[in-house]
Design a protein around this nucleic acid. Structure first.
Length: 283
DNA sequence: CGAGAGTCCTGTGCGC
DNA sequence: TGCGCACAGGACTCTC
């Protein structure tokens, strides 16, 4: 699935097609994704103008002129595909309908937004804009890793007393919101911390070093348009290319890329998810 | 409460 | 070519 950089890339790609434009037609092609879609979704969207698109963690929020916000989560395999055109933008010719196209939005500028999600772990909901932050899916999320609240002091405090492996802690969206399996692996390699290490047994200085490592990896990944492995595309159809910058993810058996390390990347399983790391330079 | 396992769903790639 | 299995970028829900 899309992690924070992929979601941010999608959000940015949607902006020219959606922001300032009215949804002229909404086609809701099945009653549910991960959960039931909201009651009357198509009619509540039709005629609404998209005021802006924002991101919270791995969620996209479209604030509408109807005082509601459309909440979107891409799950593991969700994609937003833009076709048609918007004033000053040509995306691609309107694409024929495909399997797993679940929601289609036509904008008055001429763009069509198609939400496709094979595995249907994605979600959409409509919520009053004024209380969007209180939505059950958002209310317990931790700070944004690229925001001001997330800093060395916060992370040191948050990890204190946690016995869980640092990999699991960083995947916990209540601790910090937006990291997923790939970027946690990459961050831990850059910080030189073993993914299996107990969270409460990492020296404060090394925990502090995680903060710039997280910021750097996420920022670089956003600049690269995210990572395209299977499903992720930028909304304009382009592939992201941060996967070429992976130092550990998917590289089991290959040499560690840290200069002078000479170790070999290993794959282990933690909490049912693959972890990639270098046993030689991650401690 | 924290931590781990099970769960949802479909597609793909691999070994045989 | 077909079959079965492992695995996939998430995260909620249940159990201990």
């Amino acid at each position: 699935m899309p992690e924070l950089p992929e979601v941010e890339t999608v959000r940015r790609g949607l902006e020219p097609a959606m922001v300032g434009h009215v949804i002229t037609h909404a086609d809701v092609r099945r009653p549910d994704l991960r959960w039931p879609l909201p009651e009357g979704m198509a009619s509540r969207l039709t005629g609404a103008r998209v005021l802006n698109l924002r991101r919270r963690s791995k969620y996209i929020l479209a604030d509408l002129s109807s005082s509601e916000s459309l909440l979107i989560h891409l799950g593991m395999s969700g994609r937003m595909v833009i076709s048609g055109e918007a004033p000053g933008h040509f995306f691609q010719p309107i694409v024929p309908m495909e399997k797993h196209d679940h929601v289609v939005l036509d904008m008055d500028g001429g763009a069509r937004i198609t939400f496709n999600d094979a595995r249907r772990f994605g979600a959409m909901d409509l919520v009053a804009t004024a209380s969007a932050d209180a939505h059950p899916l958002l209310v317990a999320l931790g700070p944004e890793p690229l925001g001001n609240v997330f800093d060395e002091t916060y992370l040191v405090t948050a990890l204190r007393g946690r016995k869980t492996p640092i990999k699991s802690a960083l995947l916990d969206q209540k601790l910090v919101a937006g990291l997923g399996n790939i970027y946690v692996c990459e961050v831990l390699h850059r910080a030189g911390i073993a993914p299996t290490r107990r969270s409460d047994r990492i020296a404060a200085a090394r925990v502090a070093a995680l903060v710039p490592a997280i910021r750097t990896v996420l920022t670089e990944a956003i600049a690269a348009g995210g990572s395209s492995l299977r499903d992720h595309r930028q909304a304009n159809g382009d592939l992201g290319y941060f996967q070429h910058s992976f130092r550990v993810y998917g590289r089991a058996g290959q040499p560690c890329l840290r200069p002078g390390c000479g170790g070999t990347i290993r794959r282990i399983v933690q909490a049912g998810r693959s972890t990639f790391y270098c046993p030689a330079c991650q401690r």
